[in-house]
């Protein structure tokens, strides 16, 4: 049986809102370690990988592995019924047909209970090996969101160039071009404002901005985004959770 209680419903709300436009049907695999999701978008370009570690929950038990096949659009509708500050408990039997969501208002005795019918979802699992990336950058997630939104007004593609002392984001379009250059900086008072670059090799990679527009929906999950890039392989965009992560692997574009 699964019983996982979030101190605040807002975390799961944010997670679901962050991925529901990238993938619709996905299996939430629950184990003693927490809840994981892996799913690829319909165009097979973007892979979503989520781990909500058991330490995120104020109470968590899952005796054996349970898979919850969820339609995220329906899940999002139910999850919006609860208040952000409510306790949220997910409950499912060992071979469940449905998952129950219990919202408890902390300021009153109100308890709201919803159940979502589950689906059989046949999704393959891709093996992603840990690898050394050519470059790892860490920067404020909100800045990355703004840069990508600004440059998406010009182009469908975002070029990212990384050297040891700068990160350059570029977009070239029919109506004009744009670029934003960032330099590494350490902010001691506000570490979440820092920008760091670890470089093994200089990077020059191009990505579809429509996918990045979905990725930056994770911005509210973390003050910082970690971007790991190697030339000619998928880049990893990561929002860290208190325990776990939301990762997006995005396949690059190449000059043909």
């Amino acid at each position: 049986m699964l019983e996982g209680k979030f101190e605040e419903a807002s975390l799961l709300k944010k997670v679901v809102e962050s991925i529901k436009d990238s993938v619709q049907l996905c299996n939430f695999v629950c184990s003693e370690h927490g809840i994981t999701v892996q799913a690829v978008d319909d165009s097979r370009v973007l892979l979503v990988s989520l781990l909500i570690g058991n330490e995120v929950f104020s109470d968590y038990r899952c005796d054996r592995n349970i898979t919850l096949g969820v339609d995220l659009k329906s899940f999002a509708k139910i999850i919006r019924c609860g208040g952000n500050d409510d306790y949220l408990t997910l409950i499912a039997e060992d071979s469940p047909d449905s998952v129950t969501l219990v919202f408890e208002d902390k300021n009153s005795d109100r308890i709201s209970e919803y159940s979502l019918k589950l689906m059989e979802i046949d999704n393959e699992f891709l093996k992603i090996d840990d690898m050394d990336y050519d470059s790892v950058i860490k920067m404020p997630s909100i800045d990355f969101q703004k840069i990508c939104r600004d440059l998406s007004t010009l182009s469908e593609s975002l070029q990212i160039l990384i050297t040891k002392d700068s990160i350059k984001f570029m977009a070239e379009g029919e109506t004009g071009n744009g670029s934003v250059i960032l330099k590494p900086r350490t902010d001691i008072d506000k570490p979440e404002q820092s920008i760091t670059v670890k470089l093994n090799n200089a990077v020059n990679s191009t990505f579809g901005l429509k996918y990045i527009a979905d990725i930056v929906k994770g911005t509210s999950l973390s003050n910082q985004i970690v971007i790991k890039i190697s030339n000619r392989t998928p880049a990893l965009f990561e929002y860290k959770l208190q325990s776990g992560y939301l990762r997006f692997y995005l396949a690059p574009k190449f000059e043909d």
């Binding site: 097979r44 892979l47 393959e124 891709l126 093996k127 593609s157 998928p234 396949a251 190449f254 000059e255």
Partner: peptide
């Protein structure tokens, strides 16, 4: 032109 690659070209399923 510029070509969009897919995730499966890099990772294998099991």
């Amino acid at each position: 032109g510029i070509k969009q690659t897919q995730i499966e070209e890099y990772y294998y399923s099991f």
